[in-house]
């Protein structure tokens, strides 16, 4: 028992200065992923957005539009089931399902494991673009760097134009904002100028696209963005 306060401390006390970032272990794993992507010439895209924002639909349309031009691989993040991976495989593209068993986000270690599983599935064949579809969530995935080159956040028209200001971290850490289901804008009180203005005030270098997986609007611009491979800023 110590003399000062009567607590149960018996030994001497020592303060160790650390000054490490809280998520440094994840950031180190992300940096290893990024090196691996670069060595293999893989362009990695992290898709984040709410459940039902249209991430898987955008991927399906992208796969069809790209055709045989580029080899695509997909890591599908979900809490449960491999339904999304099945949808992607049905398009003829290799996909590994990452089920988090409850976690609201993917982390860099899961991506590392998933990538190796995907590479086994492709028998070492080249992957030009790796899509990582994150768990449907507009909050937690923003904090976890996966080693991606580009982060794209989807916000669909029915969710509303107020989402950038309500979920600022997702917009601040992304390179692109994809406003999905734009064909529904006529049925909703949706202000594209407002979402654009708010998103740019949070992130002035953000690329903003309006897309529809139903009509195909904006898909060409989206694929152009993927081909253009915007600079690797190491988000977040």
């Amino acid at each position: 028992m110590c003399d000062a306060c009567g607590c149960s401390v018996v030994g001497e006390t020592r303060t160790i200065e650390i000054n490490r970032r809280l998520l440094e272990a994840n950031e180190e794993a992300a940096a290893r992923n990024r090196r691996h992507f670069d060595e293999k010439g893989i362009f990695a895209v992290n898709l984040i957005g709410s459940p039902g924002s249209g991430k898987t639909s955008l991927l399906e349309k992208t796969i069809v539009a790209v055709g045989d031009d580029l080899n695509i691989g997909v890591l599908e993040g979900d809490i449960e089931t491999d339904l999304d991976a099945q949808r992607i495989r049905a398009k003829g593209v290799p996909a590994v399902q990452l089920t988090t068993g409850g976690a609201c986000h993917l982390d860099a270690a899961l991506i590392h494991d998933g990538l190796h599983m995907l590479e086994r599935r492709t028998d070492g064949g080249a992957i030009d673009i790796l899509f990582i579809e994150n768990v449907g969530n507009l909050v937690c995935p923003s904090l976890f760097d996966l080693g991606e080159h580009m982060r794209a956040v989807l916000i669909s028209v029915p969710e509303g134009h107020d989402k950038p200001l309500k979920y600022p971290a997702a917009v601040r850490t992304s390179h692109a904002l994809v406003v999905s289901k734009i064909d529904l804008a006529q049925y909703f009180d949706f202000d594209m100028d407002k979402i654009r203005k708010d998103a740019l005030s949070l992130n002035p270098s953000l690329k903003i696209l309006a897309t529809s997986a139903t009509t195909g609007q904006g898909l060409e611009e989206w694929i152009g963005l993927l081909r253009g491979k915007p600079g690797n800023t190491g988000a977040p």
């Binding site: 650390i18 490490r20 809280l22 998520l23 440094e24 272990a25 994840n26 491999d82 991976a85 590994v96 399902q97 990452l98 089920t99 988090t100 068993g101 409850g102 976690a103 609201c104 986000h105 993917l106 982390d107 899961l110 494991d113 998933g114 599983m117 086994r120 599935r121 909050v139 937690c140 904090l143 976890f144």
Partner: peptide, 23 residues
Amino acid sequence: PWEQRTGKAAVHEVSVALGIIDE
């Protein structure tokens, strides 16, 4: 099994807490 990888359950603050505890 080779098509699926399963992680540990966590909201992101639990992931952060687990990281602090490892450290």
